[in-house]
């Protein structure tokens, strides 16, 4: 049968649901162990953060798509949470292998890391549902009717009040940690990445400016530029 946008979206959603059937909406035993091994156990903070983000997401989804669609917003959020846990576990396993450590207390108590990872997981879900186009008007953090009409990237950044620069940081590791992502989804994430690098990260208020300033000052004092810089 001919490929249509609806057929493509249905295939993509089926693949996502299939991939997430074995992943629960709670941390797996392995992930819970990583949490317990932390100097400061992040379990409760993770749970509370997800509750708050879930409410914000469903509410904003309803505002953007229509009040009768809040239930669909909750459904997408639920899939996003499963993907978030699944990818977090894969990332931690990979980091354990690379660094030979099991205590990821600092990373797992970093709220920005969790919010960025969740936002990326939700962007994957949204892309699977066929939201692959981008807003013409660009990023509008203040909201307003034109910006709230749809839920395309970078809508998710506004929902969670997340800096594009921080979202950018998780994209590559996310793709590496999730071998189930389809070519189209990877392409979508790459488009998000390019949009951030070329436009969004350079807007007023971006943390990138302060970081560049710090980097410049540090570099001048040391007179040495390391490859990592």
């Amino acid at each position: 049968p001919p490929q249509t946008p609806i057929r493509a979206a249905m295939t993509s959603i089926q693949m996502l649901r299939g991939d997430l059937t074995s992943t629960g909406d709670q941390p797996s035993t392995t992930l819970a162990t990583y949490f317990k091994q932390c100097t400061v156990d992040p379990t409760q903070d993770v749970r509370k953060r997800l509750e708050a983000h879930g409410q914000a997401f469903s509410q904003r989804f309803g505002q953007a798509v229509g009040p009768h669609c809040v239930v669909y917003g909750r459904e997408r959020f639920s899939l996003g949470v499963r993907k978030y846990y699944q990818v977090m576990e894969a990332m931690l396993k990979s980091e354990e292998k690379r660094l030979s450590v099991q205590n990821f207390s600092k990373l797992l108590n970093d709220s920005t890391f969790h919010t960025s990872l969740l936002a990326c997981a939700l962007e994957v879900v949204m892309a699977a549902y066929g939201v692959s186009s981008f807003k013409n008007g660009g990023y509008n953090p203040g909201g307003g009717e034109a910006a709230d009409r749809d839920v395309c990237f970078p809508w998710i950044l506004d929902v969670f009040d997340l800096a594009a620069f921080d979202f950018y940081k998780v994209i590559e590791s996310f793709i590496k940690a999730d071998p189930t992502l389809s070519k189209n989804i990877i392409k979508h994430l790459e488009t998000c990445e390019n949009l951030i690098m070329e436009r969004i990260a350079w807007r007023t208020g971006s943390p990138l400016f302060e970081l560049l300033k710090q980097e410049h000052e540090g570099g001048a004092a040391e007179q040495v530029e390391t490859p990592a810089s």
Binding site: M91, S94, R98, K106, L107, K169, V170, S173, I175
Partner: peptide, 21 residues
């Protein structure tokens, strides 16, 4: 299987990007 360009080196990971060692 896809043409995504990976930029992180083998010794870099999510921990470094969020300033954790």
């Amino acid at each position: 299987s896809h043409d995504y360009h990976f930029g992180l080196e083998d010794h870099e990971g999510i921990s470094e990007l969020f300033d954790c060692d």
